[in-house]
Design a protein around this nucleic acid. Structure first.
Lengths: 332, 332
DNA sequence: CACCTTTTTGTAAGCGGTTACAAAACTTGA
DNA sequence: TCAAGTTTTGTAACCGCTTACAAAAAGGTG
């Protein structure tokens, strides 16, 4: 045994396109064409090159590739001051966005969350999270002619949102089909467009069924599991009459269920609960409205690419989907 | 008004080092030296170049730079299956880690969270989050000679952790100084090293003060605000006797405070509460133990760089700090 | 089979930086 | 004032890949 501590060997030079070319007995140009799936390579040659690639365990150098392609590649993410970003939703959004940008060969430059929110580094494009319509960042980006996409609603800009309104409608229609009439809406103070839309969808479903909404069924769950718990518990203790809860987030739904069970009610036997988001680790047992966060980020990246290539401005609404699981049942 | 929708101009070529050189009347080599703060440039020349850089709003092309430096640059993050990653802590960790890696010129390759957890793409280095000592990923990385750093404890590998033990000790010593003797420890099922260490620190502080720990003061708060709320509320309703709560996370502390206040107790007049983490948006009013997440990520990146250059294996413990705010007071 | 087209492959010039080396410009001391 | 030494600057090769263009090979046709 040596006294010296273990240390890994410092360098192991990666194979380059040259090595692959030599191994396959072709030129670098041909290898490059194979790598990029370009037409005009004989099938036989292509196979030989691919074999060499696998044999050498070749991975193209991203920097060199990026340099050759010379396309804009720096994308920034800017988060509005005050938007709740320490949430499961945002974490997933961030992860998927990173993945999408990476897959498209972009460089995800920085998460900016300073109070100003204005880009400090120059980027080729921006994703805006949680911005208002007259956000100073929007003006800044427009002035500097930097393409961007807003996750949220906007006027005359590129944006993408999940269909919150439709989600609210679907959730409540599901409960109505099960015979429920007195449906609590558990949300937060309505300063957020998404939560407002979910509530509007809720109201629309009631309206379509000819049911008048009851104002005291709108509860403030503070967007958190704790808030959901306290709101529902208080409502029960105050004797509020309802047979179902539509929580505008999975977290609030979890809290609602805990409160119901703590007070001896069974879900879904006595009370049905619907959530919103379908978050992994959290809402996996809930009847809920699924937001496809991956798709939202994919659309965001698409829109951004359109902006980068000067295409016309466009926006998109990503559909949501009711997932029926074990927390809803026929009204007793 | 044109009917055609607005569209931004597709391209605006960035200035290159050549442009800067011409503008400043020097060669590209000199500009490069200025950019990288190399010695051997006359102060006057340096100033002229810097002026040109600012004037042209020049930003070096990262791809070109990376290609020239030819250093390993792809860093992956791997998250153990089953570790709770949709938490504020993890989100902040991710953001800081991205920032650090970026600042050091690395490329943050991917967030892996598949059940296997093994790297699917080749990376030059890895950050492991929430791995156990005999994690298959560790063996894999060692076999393939890929440098990595674990956020957590390990044997014979590079790792970094915050000083959880010391944090627990500091929190409880603070409460002891205020005269508290019956201190609830609010945590989760102890499957997590960090939470175990915090509890061990708690016990050590008691022990140093000659106080015997009381087993029923250890409460399961499920690592969440809701769990903290329910645990503390139940304890109060069961008549548990205590004058202070040490919650092993800010979220549980928030829950604990809500429960206390719902049952008519005042914080800190009647009961003192200490949290752990000092999370923005969440723990900002708490007396808490501050974890410097930014520093943790910075150390992780340092260790990784050492691994990349073949330096000996080393680990580091990042200190934590008691922040006294408004939720603790002398025992009445 | 000679000739023309089409397909496949090779060659070499970039992409935008860094840096080893050489050249030029200053210092210094006798 | 000039040679030798030192500092500053310029030149050009190179990093690994893409791609326009040219060359070679293959395929068709009368």
């Amino acid at each position: 045994m040596m006294a010296r501590p273990l240390s890994s060997s410092p360098q192991k030079p990666r194979p380059t396109i040259q090595d692959v070319a030599k191994e396959a007995g072709v030129s670098t140009g041909t290898v490059s064409r194979v790598l990029n799936n370009r037409a005009g390579v004989k099938a036989q040659t292509r196979a030989r090159v691919q074999a060499a690639i696998i044999h050498l365990n070749y991975q193209p150098d991203l920097a060199a590739r990026e340099l050759s392609f010379r396309q804009p590649t720096r994308i920034g993410l800017s988060i509005a001051a005050g938007s709740r970003r320490l949430t499961p939703f945002f974490t997933l959004f961030l992860e998927y966005l990173m993945g999408e940008l990476q897959a498209e060969g972009f460089r995800f430059e920085e998460v900016q969350s300073d109070s100003q929110g204005l880009p400090t580094e120059l980027t080729d494009g921006m994703v805006l999270f949680g911005a208002h319509d007259d956000d100073p960042r929007i003006h800044y980006l427009q002035e500097h002619n930097i393409p961007f996409v807003l996750v949220g609603h906007g006027e005359g800009i590129r944006w993408v949102v999940p269909d919150d309104y439709d989600g609210g409608r679907q959730a409540v229609e599901h409960l109505l089909r099960l015979g429920h009439r007195d449906i609590v809406h558990l949300s937060g103070l309505m300063n957020n467009q998404a939560f407002q839309d979910r509530y509007q969808g809720h109201l629309a479903a009631l309206n379509n069924a000819g049911i008048k909404p009851h104002p005291e069924l709108l509860l403030d769950g503070d967007f958190s599991s704790l808030g959901g718990y306290r709101a529902v518990r208080k409502a029960l203790e105050d004797g509020l009459n309802f047979s179902a809860v539509f929580a505008a987030s999975d977290e609030m739904a979890i809290g609602a269920i805990a409160a119901l069970e703590d007070l001896g009610l069974r879900v879904p036997l006595d009370i049905s609960v619907v959530g919103f988001d379908d978050l992994p680790e959290i809402g996996e047992t809930l009847t809920t409205i699924r937001q496809d966060i991956e798709q939202i980020t994919a659309v965001a990246v698409d829109l951004l690419k359109e902006g980068l290539s000067g295409k016309p401005i466009r926006h998109e609404t990503v559909p949501v989907q009711l997932i029926v699981r074990g927390t809803t049942a026929k009204r007793r």
